Simulated scan of single mutants.
Amino acid sequence: MADLHSTFTEFDGIIKLNSTKKSSLRTSRNSIREDIRKYFDEKREDHSVSFKGQGSFMMNTTIKPISNEFDLDDGVYIFGKEEDRPTPQTAHNWIYDAVKNRTSSESLDKNTCVRVIYKSDYHIDLPIYYKVDKSKDEYTLDDEVPELAHLSKGWIKSDPYAFKKWFDGEAKNKPQLKRIVRYLKSWSDKKQTDNSKLIFPSGMIFTILASNCFIEDERDDISLLETLKAIQEEIDDTRFDDAYYECYRPTVDETEDLLNKYAAKTTKENFLNALDSFIKSGNQAIELESKKDACAKWQKHLGDRFPCSTIKEESSDTSARVFSNPDQIGFDHKSA
Rank of each mutant, 00 (worst) to 15 (best):
F8A: 06
E10A: 15
I15V: 11
S24K: 15
L25T: 01
S31D: 15
I32L: 15
E45N: 14
D46S: 13
H47R: 10
Q54T: 03
S56F: 09
M58Y: 04
T61V: 13
T62L: 15
E69L: 10
E82P: 08
K100T: 02
S104K: 07
K110Q: 15
K110C: 14
Y122P: 01
I124N: 08
L126N: 12
Y130A: 02
K134H: 04
E138H: 04
E138N: 04
Y139D: 13
D143F: 06
D143N: 10
E144H: 07
V145I: 15
P146I: 10
L148Y: 07
A149N: 05
A149V: 00
S152A: 12
G154R: 13
Y161N: 09
F167N: 04
E170R: 15
A171H: 06
K174H: 09
Q176A: 04
R179K: 11
V181K: 11
V181R: 11
R182T: 08
Y183N: 05
W187S: 06
D189I: 08
K190W: 07
S196C: 06
G203T: 03
I208Q: 03
L209D: 04
S211N: 09
S211Q: 15
N212L: 09
F214N: 11
E216T: 02
D217K: 10
R219A: 08
D221F: 06
I222Y: 11
L224W: 06
T227R: 05
L228G: 00
E234V: 00
E246V: 09
C247F: 09
C247S: 14
T255W: 04
K265F: 00
E269W: 01
A274G: 10
L275Y: 00
F278N: 00
E289Y: 02
D293F: 10
K297P: 01
G303K: 03
G303R: 09
C308I: 07
S309Y: 02
I311M: 02
I311C: 00
S315P: 01
F323T: 01
F323R: 01
Q328S: 11
